[in-house]
Design a protein around this nucleic acid. Structure first.
Length: 490
RNA sequence: UCCCCAGUAGCUCAGUUGGUCAGAGCAUCCGACUGUUAAUCGGAGGGUCGUAGGUUCAAGUCCUACCUGGGGAGCCA
């Protein structure tokens, strides 16, 4: 899009070029209604002889469906998609959706005339339309506004074989048609909540003086142990898609103090569970001078903030998903904390075969979480079970200063965090123990040579967090276009 | 990579110990209906039963392999 001046802009679509009016009173841009009048006039507009604004002002702007209740009793213009048609002899209905809400277009044969009545038959599921008429409250169904149609323009017809129906579908079919599935009310609710969470993340850190740092997606061999996606990279050989931004985040924390990253990460793990994607989004704060205790405090404040923000602002969407909101309202800091040794003893009492030194498996996590209605911290795991960069626990060198945060209701591990090893010699020894290529970590080791510092951070899995908040069992549903082992399209 | 389950109409599924087993609902199309909310009612079209072999007089059904998907484990967020 190209801005012309403070009030107009040119917008190009697949169908042509038309104008958007920027109203000082209404900051969100609205398309001019008479699109045909403005289309295909790029050259004229460039020469500044054409003034789309004055022409625009002669017509009423189209409204979003969410704005309709404020215009009840008035003549309105709406652009939307038809989700459903029903006919009853001499009255016909077309359910409408535009992403902001739903409405119902009403055609009464005796009022609309034969021509408009006949054109109702052209409406099929997912036809895109411009409809003009009177907005009015229907006493029989006050929640959905009627539009008594006086004008109908079919913008994009839709063949009668639209695959998504208002009924149960298999997950394979739905994922094959994800580009259509997103149009359903439930998927819209999930994406709205995802957007709310993302906005809340940025607000939380901005308000607390964190600097957002964008870390690279193409990296040399560095990061964690599990599978890497590889790609050719000019003369440098092989590049890998980032599994984490953490190591870069540590460098940024030494420069800026408090930082966070927000971006996609990639794991070529052949995982087939409801908790795994090959491409997922992660938030990774890194804070200079935070120890492990302060790190956990930040985590619980952060999680509380995200959950309560959604509860406060996205109640309709939570209701659409039939989420038990009372379970979310209870999510307030502080969260219960179990050190690893106590956690092992707990799951052993409950019949687990886990023994000290093992990482806790999914079943063990479920045993821990079942006693609580808040997320639970498990902290200070054995060194062998955790990554090389975690700081040795001075009180028990068999363990490291780290924590997992387990979501309630069986949604699993939401956060992994730790205080980082700040001792050069110990970090070097751990890199060697792990058999990692030292030359790839020279810059990371430099952070300990030039002004080492206590610091800690964590990674929060965005999709796991949203799945928990939404009460969605599988995280593939909380990202618009999930990437999994067997799914690369759409 | 390992364990378990499933592939039958556009979709969701039923199909009994192998023998009218090519079926239903929804969707689509045609017709009826003046207020429907996944409208209702009547009618029609629509399938090499995932693929390839095998057993049998006879296979959607039993066996083998492969393909595809789902659930779980491990790994992790």
């Amino acid at each position: 899009m190209q801005r012309r001046d403070s009030r107009t802009a040119l917008c190009r679509t697949g169908e042509g070029v038309y104008h958007w009016r920027l109203s000082p009173q209404a900051p969100p841009m609205r398309p001019c209604v008479e699109r045909r009048a403005c289309s295909g006039i790029l050259d004229e507009a460039r020469s500044s002889r054409h003034s789309p604004v004055t022409r625009d002002m002669t017509t009423a702007p189209s409204l979003r469906i969410s704005e309709l209740p404020a215009h009840a009793g008035q003549h309105v213009v709406v652009r939307a998609w038809v989700t459903h048609v029903r006919s009853s002899g001499k009255v016909a209905f077309a359910a409408l959706r535009d992403g902001t809400g739903v409405a119902q277009a009403v055609f009464v044969k005796s009022q609309v005339g034969d021509d408009l009545w006949a054109r109702f038959a052209e409406l099929t599921t997912e036809t895109s339309v411009e409809i003009a008429g009177e907005a009015r409250v229907n006493p029989r169904a006050p929640s959905v506004l009627d539009i008594g149609v006086t004008r109908l323009e079919i913008i994009g017809p839709s063949p009668s074989d639209y695959p998504i129906q208002p009924k149960e579908h298999g997950i394979d079919f739905l994922l094959d048609h994800r580009h259509f599935w997103l149009r359903s009310p439930r998927q819209r609710a999930i994406m709205v909540i995802r957007n709310e969470v993302e906005q809340a993340i940025h607000d939380f850190f901005y308000e607390r003086g964190f600097l957002r740092v964008d870390t690279p997606i193409l990296t040399a061999a560095i990061g964690e142990r599990s599978g890497l996606f590889a790609t050719e990279y000019f003369e440098e050989g092989t590049a890998y898609l980032a599994q984490t931004g953490q190591l870069y985040g540590e460098a940024a924390a030494a420069a800026f103090g408090k930082i966070y990253t927000f971006g996609p990460t990639f794991r070529a793990e052949k995982s087939k569970t409801r908790r795994h994607l090959t491409e997922f989004w992660m938030i990774e704060p890194e804070v200079a001078w935070n120890d492990s205790e302060a790190n956990m405090k930040l985590q619980e404040d952060f999680v509380e903030f995200l959950v309560q923000r959604v509860v406060q602002r996205r109640r309709p969407e939570l209701d659409e998903l039939e989420r038990d909101v009372s379970k979310l309202e209870r999510i307030t800091a502080p969260f219960p904390r179990l050190n690893y040794t106590d956690a092992v003893a707990l799951v052993q009492r409950k019949g687990s075969t886990a023994k000290w030194g093992d990482d806790l498996g999914a079943e063990d996590e479920a045993l821990i979480v079942e006693d609580y209605d808040k997320p639970v911290f498990v902290f200070n795991y054995p060194k062998e079970a955790k990554a090389f960069y975690m700081k040795e626990n001075p009180d028990d060198p068999r363990t490291v200063l780290c924590n997992d945060l387990l979501a309630p209701e069986g949604f699993g591990e939401m956060i992994g965090g730790s205080q980082r090893e700040d001792d050069y010699d110990k970090l070097l020894a751990r890199i060697k123990e792990e058999g990692l290529p030292i030359e790839a970590y020279d810059w990371y080791l430099d952070l300990r040579r030039y002004g080492t510092f206590t610091h800690a951070g964590f990674g929060l899995g965005l999709e796991r967090t949203i799945a928990w908040i939404c009460g969605i069992q599988h995280i593939r549903e909380v990202i618009a276009f999930p990437r999994m082992m067997h799914r690369l399209r759409p």
